[in-house]
């Protein structure tokens, strides 16, 4: 069965038909061409496919595309604006948080959500927030440092890049997270 849906992806309104069985991951990658969304397991274990749905990190592989109808999606392709890396992306580059790069998009997005929340996190809290993402290359050390730095930078600047997150959703949905 097919259904027509509409969503805003990286600031652009998209309207199209999907098979109701399609995951958001499949639609983002195969229909819209956002291949920065990575599939590492397909069943919500690894976090590689995380995107922000109305500002909240979600595993897009276990989220039906039809559920995204009317929602605002941010993928990794929408994080940098006008060729400028966001503070989160810059922190990942500077801190050596990137190796093979396959877990990177998901982690950048989750970190973006944390940084945009304006909240402070203890080390343990931050670890828990990031624990929905597997990484085999880095031992998480530099990812953690990058996340800490990015969150601090964004708190200091009072914003985290210039894209269009659905800020109003943060407070009530933050605790749901992707874990």
């Amino acid at each position: 069965m097919r259904k027509k849906i509409a969503m805003t992806v990286n600031g652009k309104v998209e309207s199209f038909e999907v098979d109701v069985r399609d995951s958001l991951l499949e639609v983002l990658r195969n229909t819209l061409g956002y291949t920065g969304v990575k599939k590492g397991c397909g069943v919500g274990e690894c976090g590689a496919c995380s995107v922000l749905i109305d500002g909240v990190p979600i595993d897009s592989c276990i989220y039906l595309a039809v559920w995204a109808d009317g929602k605002t999606i941010l993928t990794i392709e929408g994080v940098a604006q006008d060729g400028e890396l966001s503070p989160v992306q810059q922190a990942f580059v500077d801190k050596g948080a990137v190796q093979c790069g396959f877990c990177t998009p998901g982690l950048v997005l989750t970190t973006t959500a944390l940084a945009e929340s304006g909240q402070e996190y203890t080390k343990d809290e931050l670890k828990r927030e990031l624990s929905g993402h597997f990484c085999r290359c880095t031992g998480y050390q530099n990812i953690f440092k990058a996340a800490e730095k990015a969150i601090e930078t964004c708190r200091h600047d009072g914003s985290c890049g210039n894209h269009h997150p659905a800020d109003h959703h943060h407070d009530q949905e933050k605790q749901e997270g992707s874990e």
Partner: peptide
């Protein structure tokens, strides 16, 4: 910095 870091943090790196 890694020569591929920007490609990988922006989703431009193609696998």
């Amino acid at each position: 910095p890694r020569v591929d870091a920007v490609a990988k943090v922006t989703g431009k790196a193609k696998y």
